[in-house]
Amino acid sequence: MDSRERGMISNQDLRNPIVRVVYTVMVAALAGLTVTMIYPFLTTIFNAFKSKRDIFTFPPKLLPQEWVWTNFTEGWEFISFGKYFLNTMYIFGGTMFFSILFIGMASFSLAHLSIPYRKGFTLFFMCTLLIPGSTYMIPNYLNLKELGLINTYWALWLPAAANAFWILLLKNFFDELNKELFEAARIDGASELRCFLQLAIPLSMPIVSTLFIFGFTYVWNEWFWTGILLSDADKYPIATAVYKYVISGENNSIGVNVQFGVLTIVMLPPLLVFILLQKQIIRGVNLSGVKG
């Protein structure tokens, strides 16, 4: 083994029987951990394939006795997946549009344009990182109500752009971009708007794509706050709809197996995103480690 590849334990150590036993136990524990991680996924997915009789057999079995596909179609119909999916995508689209545009412009200004009181403006944004959002949840709601934004998507889109963490990430990325590049563009007669839209944003695709993943995860997950802000059930995103109609049991007209069908359907898009974009997602995790 290449010496640079070694960890705390070297090949030499593994000849020691005690180390070897500990190492084996460790690997076994990790295997157990892996099973614990995977098992809930498997029950959820397999339950979605069970028949009504099958799901209540005692003791519960992991695999279905007969594979039933209708739970998915029934669940899809019950939760009006198409409608709520479109709502979710609409919320996601607006959130990303306003966030990337406004946060991007501000970050670009802080990184590459001449402004007075740069430190003051930076503080004005960054101080909010220190204030936990839930502590002003009630005034936040009353404020949105006063502005007449309750039950509109604006109440979700605009506040999403007030995100200091994203400013931090984008500004740090813009800081790394070459100043001369923008100088050259300006000499060639490009306006600052063009510098931003046609140079800064395209060059920042790595971080912008990470922000898209963050945004999607957030919008796909958020069920409580959207349920408070949107009083019209036709405007709910999928998460709120699933909470109201499947989890909280306001409407128990469907069987448990169909409920698992719904849960599996709702889990699939993030799973797909994860499988396709795992590298960016893992990088995003390490970014969020610096967040307060």
Binding site: S109, Y136, L142, A161
Partner: peptide, 23 residues
Amino acid sequence: GLLFLLPEIIIFSVFQWKPIVMS
């Protein structure tokens, strides 16, 4: 520079600082 900052300043004032102070 200021023009680019303006939208975000408005957003932060209305949707973050105002609720914080109003609490």
